[in-house]
Write a protein that binds this DNA or RNA. Structure first.
Lengths: 264, 264
DNA sequence: ACCTGAACACCGTTCAAGT
DNA sequence: ACCTGAACACCGTTCAAGT
């Protein structure tokens, strides 16, 4: 089981700081680039995208980089720390997204829309990584998945407060926004995954479960085609619009809306 | 490292079917009960609750049950399958919750409230298991976490359709309800976990991260006390009320509400 | 019928040794 | 300075052997 030589891609993103002091055994640009933490984490993201999280071991990642597993420990203290780095790197991709920024004059709703769509693109680009983004314990309780970084929390709060939200409303909006993104996107990627997934199941794995007594669930059977539709994109838009609308009410009225407010 | 003998609890729930044919080496009721899949899965839930998911190995679970790891394989085909069983068992606790049922005459809102609170109780009772509930690939794409069982999907859809929802609206409500529960509860348990968690970190692990350049996040610093408040319970109620209100509009108008509907 | 001992292939991780 | 070989303690899992 030697590694497949399917890597003729010249996309290794170096060009940051000291440009590789000449190495005796592996001159730069000839194939194997120098090891560093960034490159290892990048390779781990690629690996998880391609093979799934369960397949990522230190030994296999080492082989993927043309090196023994032990060499990785000079740059990464443990596998757990590596996974933290993977989560951070994937979320950091958002910094480079030109569509995610506060457009002056377009208001906070526009910004929250851009941010939400940016996170969604990342979730869909790395479906095998997203469960990690969702479940790794955050550094502080108020750095919530999926945004997971002080920079985005800061940016979010500033945008709302500058738009007239009071502090309590801004914080509560941040919490509601996180919950919405996390719930929707985790379900969307898991739904996508289950369609293609399951390693190599020899026959219908649902048959066993379902065939047991599908007759007990007549409504599910009757609505199966409706249930099987993938309306993720539209539902994302609708739930996001609804959340923004709710926040608009909070902003106008200076408090959280109570049920039944808009009647009589 | 021998196992702690801290189990004097007589709560092993047997009494289901054939009542243990007498065994030569371990007579029933004298201490070690007979092994079976249900008991193994129950022990696994206990173990994860107490020690965390990462600590659960087949060998340690065997020791916890007074048996070698290899003995488990007669009842459980693999660790992965055991984890599936754990998720199923935890969700099945909902069947036994007397507060979770359709109260005749109280309407679908009351039922969805009871169901949501029942799921929340389970998530809070098993915070270490809930991430598993959230991320294990479902059997079918439309059996969504956290409800994960045909029985609850059936029950949910029937309640709404009997209340006058059309099929599309009922299915779309089921999806929105799942997203809400998953996002909110996953964040709530992870928030709870991070407060007590982190195995045995010798010193403030956030210090390292934060002290780096906290000055770049003045708003986060200024609002830290607000951000640190745990308003999970109130936010759960509010988001749930809001969702129900939204569904009420769908029911009354026979379609999904569009943004700006209730102005002029 | 049910459990165990021994074994296999594989982990994460450490560290002295090589270059 | 950077990587490797060998080793340690531990995995999940199989299976012939014990009782």
């Amino acid at each position: 089981m030697d590694e497949p030589r399917a890597d003729a891609d010249p996309d290794s993103p170096e060009g940051r700081g000291g440009a590789a002091a000449v190495m005796p055994a592996a001159p730069p640009g000839s194939g194997r680039a120098a090891l560093d933490r960034r490159r290892i984490i990048g390779a781990a993201v690629e690996f998880i995208d391609a093979q799934g999280l369960a397949a990522l071991t230190m030994r296999r990642l080492g082989a993927h980089l043309g090196v023994e597993a032990m060499a990785l420990y000079r740059y990464v203290p443990s596998r757990e720390n590596l996974l933290d780095g993977v989560v951070e790197a994937v979320i950091d991709e958002l910094y480079g997204d030109p569509d995610v920024h506060l457009e002056p004059g377009h208001g906070w709703q526009d910004y929250l829309q851009r941010l939400a769509h940016g996170v969604r693109r990342i979730a869909l680009a790395h479906p095998e990584v997203f469960p990690l983004v969702a479940t790794r314990p955050p550094a502080a309780p108020w750095v919530r998945p999926p945004l997971r970084s002080l920079r985005w929390v800061e940016s979010f709060l500033v945008a709302l407060i500058d738009s007239g939200f009071n502090q309590e409303a801004a914080v509560s909006a941040y919490r509601a926004y996180s919950s919405f993104l996390l719930g929707h996107l985790l379900l969307e990627v898991s739904q996508k995954g289950v369609a293609v997934n399951a390693e190599d199941q020899p026959e219908g794995v649902e048959e066993a479960q379902e065939a047991a007594d599908l007759s007990q669930y007549p409504t599910v059977v009757r609505l199966e085609s409706l249930l099987s539709l993938d309306e993720s994109a539209a539902e994302f838009e609708e739930a996001l619009e609804n959340l923004l609308e709710r926040l608009e009410v909070v902003l106008r009225e200076g408090r959280a809306p109570r049920r039944g407010d808009h009647r009589d």
